[in-house]
Design a protein around this nucleic acid. Structure first.
Ligand SMILES: NC(=O)c1ccc[n+]([C@@H]2O[C@H](COP(=O)([O-])OP(=O)(O)OC[C@H]3O[C@@H](n4cnc5c(N)ncnc54)[C@H](O)[C@@H]3O)[C@@H](O)[C@H]2O)c1
Ligand SMILES: NC(=O)c1ccc[n+]([C@@H]2O[C@H](COP(=O)([O-])OP(=O)(O)OC[C@H]3O[C@@H](n4cnc5c(N)ncnc54)[C@H](O)[C@@H]3O)[C@@H](O)[C@H]2O)c1
Lengths: 210, 210
DNA sequence: GAGAAGTCGTGATATTTTTCACAATTGAGT
DNA sequence: ACTCAATTGTGAAAAATATCACGACTTCTC
């Protein structure tokens, strides 16, 4: 692994920076300062400069950053030149939304296949992405290393085990289940109910007024 | 504000603890240790004990925690006795998925109304939740303090301003736009494309093998 | 080309979060 | 009643993250 020194907090912000640099570039902006970027992405400007500095001196003092250069740098850092294929498991409410959307904008990530247990859905496609039966995982999954999990929570563990067996490296888990995986496999949980509850909690207990 | 001393990191984990305590309770479990809970929620047991300790001594040394007691404690801490009403703006792919789901399980949060600009959708309802025209925001929104934002990114700022004017306190923002709000309003961003890109980045640059 | 204004990169510092590690206490077994 | 294994609650340490603040450099203006 090449850049193990980059803090996780920084790594999580990189895609965000990349997106806004793309916006700026499309608007024809040539330069940008950490202060301007800060207002756009709502991250403190010192934090942005620190984040960038892990990759070396990308800017010029007194000038700021060259948008095109920075964009190019992040493009290669984020491997935007190659496409990452992703599989989606569970074509329900949430899964269907993702298939329709498919993360197309400024993004090198594509959902290229989906799996479901429901025979009604198998064989069809959504947004051009074929839906296979979950039992076909073995033959179809091939080299895909990343999966999005949008099955019912009760199925999460079973499916996870199958994915692990097939050699998956990363899982984006939308189920409320906290799945168990070997430690060389990375799981990111996106727990929408928790996010909503946490927001409500903050409003009740941390509000500035009252 | 009552408990300003609880760290944000802790506050974000509370709903997670609550959910798993509910699971345990439904399974008829009477006691649980921080170690067991740790395995279930994938949070270090010392962190769990520390989190709980901000609320006082909830457990018994040598014994663990009484599930029912702990559950009751969190229920009131998370205001689970009262229902929090939430509005959803933008009934598209994502919005429709949320309306169908509606965070029903073990949860006191309800989406009670939705808004859209599309006349095709206005007047209908999804999962029993009425869809109003966005121009009706003024008259319909009333006392709702929390909104889920699932409109196109281009609309995010306009809608946000309307919500702010109407006195909203918190926004769960699913658009890629980083919206600007007065500082007494809380925004949580859930940026699915960023999450996916970040996961891929971690796999490429932080993997244990290779 | 001198001065002013702007901005980076970073050492130092502050804050937040996690983890270690252990005395104190409990419940269970005999 | 005594022993022992289990487990909490927490002081202290460590690790991670964010922010301050300023010297050094760049560009712009006159
Ligand atoms: N929809 C939401 O707004 C929302 C919000 C928060 C969390 N979630 C979570 O996301 C997950 C998906 O939610 P949803 O609303 O899309 O559910 P859903 O029931 O609409 O979809 C689940 C899909 O998984 C398929 N499935 C079931 N068993 C399967 C198996 N063994 N293999 C493959 N596919 C299988 C079903 O056929 C269905 O199409 C759930 O765990 C839910 O708790 C959803
Ligand atoms: N669907 C996904 O998987 C996904 C993933 C990541 C991010 N997002 C983001 O979430 C947001 C919603 O995505 P989506 O796929 O549901 O989009 P969508 O286009 O399906 O839905 C947007 C909805 O908003 C409505 N709308 C448009 N302008 C409006 C206005 N002024 N007032 C009220 N309603 C209005 C539209 O009529 C439509 O129903 C977008 O910002 C998108 O970038 C979606």
């Amino acid at each position: 692994m090449d850049q193990n020194k980059i803090p996780q907090a920084t790594a999580k912000r990189l895609p965000l920076y990349y997106r806004f640099l793309n916006n700026l570039n499309q608007q024809g902006k040539k330069r940008v300062s950490s202060k301007q970027l800060s207002e756009a992405v709502k991250v403190d400007s010192a934090t942005i400069r620190r984040d960038f500095s892990y990759f070396g001196a990308l800017g010029k003092k007194g000038y700021g950053y060259n948008v095109e250069y920075l964009l190019g740098f992040f493009r290669s850092t984020l491997d935007q030149h190659e496409v990452t294929e992703v599989a989606l498991i569970g074509v329900g409410n949430l899964g269907t939304a993702f298939l329709n959307y498919n993360f197309l904008k400024n993004n090198n990530i594509r959902i290229t296949m989906a799996f479901d247990a429901d025979q009604e859905k198998v064989g069809k496609d959504i947004g051009g992405i074929p839906i296979y039966h979950i039992d076909e995982l073995d033959e179809k999954l091939k080299d895909i290393k990343v999966a999005i999990l949008t099955v019912p929570a009760t199925e999460a563990d079973t499916i996870t085990n199958k994915l692990v067996e097939k050699g998956i490296s990363g899982i984006l888990n939308f189920t409320p289940a906290r799945i168990t995986v070997p430690e060389n496999i990375r799981v990111h949980h996106i727990d929408l109910a928790v996010e909503l509850q946490a927001l409500v909690y903050f409003l009740k207990h941390y509000s500035l007024d009252s």
